[in-house]
């Protein structure tokens, strides 16, 4: 986003009052090997999923903390978005899903030798959640285990 000072007062207050978790410190995992030797996974909070998957749901009690699996081989034609927020412009995603989920860009980086390889599956959560405890306690660790089981070294996180 542009600096909050550039937004309207309502938008600025909305962003500043958002109930995100506050931490005192940061878990730190250094790179074990170079990116060109690493397997990269992709996790997004864009509310994307396969056509035919259960849609994400609106909720008055914090939001939908489930996740969906998007196999790397999925065509962009088979991915849709049921993100529950109206607070963003969907036009770019209609035009090109890579603007939030770089499914075509990452293989290009593999071809260029900048990334070693990609995981077989990507993972998608809802964003704009007011209560993320379901992710912290359940769905987040579950996805982390799946990524580790695939031998992922580096995870790229994208919002929408």
């Amino acid at each position: 986003m542009p600096k909050l000072s550039a937004l309207s007062e309502i938008q600025r207050k909305s962003m500043l009052m958002w109930p995100c978790i506050e931490h005192d410190d940061t878990p730190w995992t250094p790179m074990a090997k170079s990116l060109s030797e690493s397997k990269v996974g992709l996790v997004t909070t864009a509310g994307l999923h396969l056509r035919g998957d259960q849609p994400f749901r609106s909720s008055h009690d914090g939001g939908d903390t489930t996740y969906r699996t998007i196999p790397r081989s999925t065509s962009s034609a088979d991915i849709i978005q049921t993100h529950t927020s109206l607070g963003f412009d969907h036009t770019g995603i209609y035009r090109d899903i890579n603007v939030t989920l770089p499914i075509d860009r990452l293989p290009e980086l593999v071809e260029q030798g900048k990334i070693g390889s990609l995981s077989d599956n990507y993972y998608s959560f809802m964003g704009a959640l007011r209560d993320v405890s379901g992710i912290v306690e359940d769905s987040g660790p579950e996805v982390a285990r799946k990524l580790k089981d695939e031998g992922v070294d580096v995870v790229l996180l994208t919002p929408t």
């Binding site: 600096k3 958002w18 878990p27 995603i93 939030t100």
Partner: peptide, 26 residues
């Protein structure tokens, strides 16, 4: 400002509005 509170290990703050995390479609 949210990343400053959550403190994830590595984050790139981008100047784009919601829906355009990687800048521009196409």
């Amino acid at each position: 400002e949210h990343a400053q509170r959550v403190k994830p290990p590595r984050m790139l703050a981008v100047p784009f509005f919601f829906g355009n995390a990687l800048g521009e479609a196409d």
